[in-house]
Nucleic acid binder design. Structure first.
Lengths: 244, 244
DNA sequence: GCTTAACGTTTTGTATACAACTTCTGAGAA
DNA sequence: TTCTCAGAAGTTGTATACAAAACGTTAAGC
């Protein structure tokens, strides 16, 4: 029925594996999220706890916990004693989601540039900074390889990882957690309509990181905002040609 | 031991009471949240499910659900099989939280102004718009009364309600839910250090709504950003004089 | 025919019981 | 002394069982 392989490990779950234990609750959550994103559970359809429990071969308790998490992510809506249902399609909120990305990611880029300057001047050294900065270089390099081999599916994941890594460079846990909040809907949005802009967009990431490295806050904001705006325009262009 | 009166009904919970049923889970969540915000549960302290269950006279199940919700709000941090603890004091993230408010609320103000223009021109009429707009007028009027009577505690709640109402005017559920996400931490931040800027800040709300009514997007952004920035500066000034 | 109220079914919410994991303690060896 | 590794204690995670509320159905009344 359901594939036994753990597909999970979405771009979001990049947390350091301090504890290898993955409670069945989060595992079920990952699967339900996947089923929502891929459309197996259609928007607006009811999510019955008993059915989900049977489907994923667990009791209702982990299912409930998973539903709560998904509710926080905005993928599920619940009402007491009335149950849960899949949230409306994120396509309705596409404009909002991109605007949120524009304002939030512009802010993280600005912060990252600021912190970069601080690192260079040695004002407030942070050991983790260099690690994250190196990870970004790795991501960019891996992206080149992936583009070379035309494995665009993997590029989407790398894209997510890049943007979250920039957020980490900003050093703001609040911004990171907010971005994580909407990442589910963003992923959902993209999966409904796989954009092929990846290869063209990739070089823009180097522009972004260059501005950050140079400590140019205004430039970083401008480049990041333009990058996300282009992503948005590409999305809507694709939507338009899909439904003429 | 624990006061039996339902203190709850934080400014956040302004959802329309479609169903009068309040599951004990959310009720417990409200109480724990309150205890975190007021400092009864200190930052970093462990939150043992059994203890909380006994304290609030429920089983561990509702406690767990409440903890999950609080985790999503950023007030609690959890690790599988290791338990939950109160998140670090939001004071550390104060700068971030205000910056998030600046970018998010500027965006909602801009949207609200845009929608206001649409309402005036009759392009995309929305019945709910007028209701929310009227609610704002009521909030502003009530604020005047509260200031007259120097009941500044109530002003804090009205302030929250005003800002959420503006977000609702924007018509973007995504923005609203994101603001709701951080509202818990914002509330926490303020409660640690009750600002007395309320009375001076109140007239600025009229500036904001005036810009929105006029449909002036740029102006609305500017005024809202300045308003939140002043709030931030006032907060840090008070923190500075508190710890010299 | 339409509305409405009562009843049974279904589903969610919660309590209890048990399993799985972490963490603390302390003994033993290098 | 310090490190390592059992083992016990305690806490979290999950399954089962039961209570409470919502929903759908049916039948009575207008």
């Amino acid at each position: 029925m359901s594939d036994p392989s753990q597909t999970g490990a979405s771009a979001t779950g990049a947390a350091a594996a301090t504890s290898s234990t993955t409670s069945s609750s989060v595992s079920v959550g990952t699967k339900i999220r996947q089923d929502i994103i891929t459309g197996t559970h259609a928007p607006g359809s009811k999510l019955r706890e008993a059915a989900l429990a049977k489907q994923y071969a667990v009791s209702r308790i982990p299912v409930r916990e998973a539903l709560r998490s998904l509710e926080a992510e905005g993928l599920v809506e619940s009402r007491p004693y009335s149950g849960s249902m899949v949230a409306p399609s994120p396509v309705e909120d596409a404009e909002d989601l991109f605007e949120i990305r524009i304002v939030l990611e512009s802010a993280t880029a600005k912060r990252a540039a600021k912190r970069s300057a601080e690192q260079s001047s040695g004002a407030a050294p942070d050991d983790r900074w260099h690690g994250v900065r190196k990870e970004i270089s790795d991501i960019l390099a891996e992206g080149d390889v992936v583009i070379e081999q035309e494995r665009y599916e993997d590029l989407a994941v790398l894209n997510m990882r890049f943007h979250f890594a920039v957020a980490e460079l900003s050093g703001s846990v609040s911004f990171i957690s907010l971005l994580r909040q909407i990442s589910g809907k963003i992923e959902w949005l993209y999966s409904l309509n796989v954009t092929r802009r990846g290869p063209q967009a990739w070089p823009e990431h180097r522009e972004i990181i260059a501005a950050i490295d140079a400590g140019q806050e205004a430039k970083a904001v401008e480049v990041m905002a333009r990058h996300v705006r282009r992503s948005r325009d590409s999305y809507f262009a694709m939507m338009a040609e899909k439904t003429p």
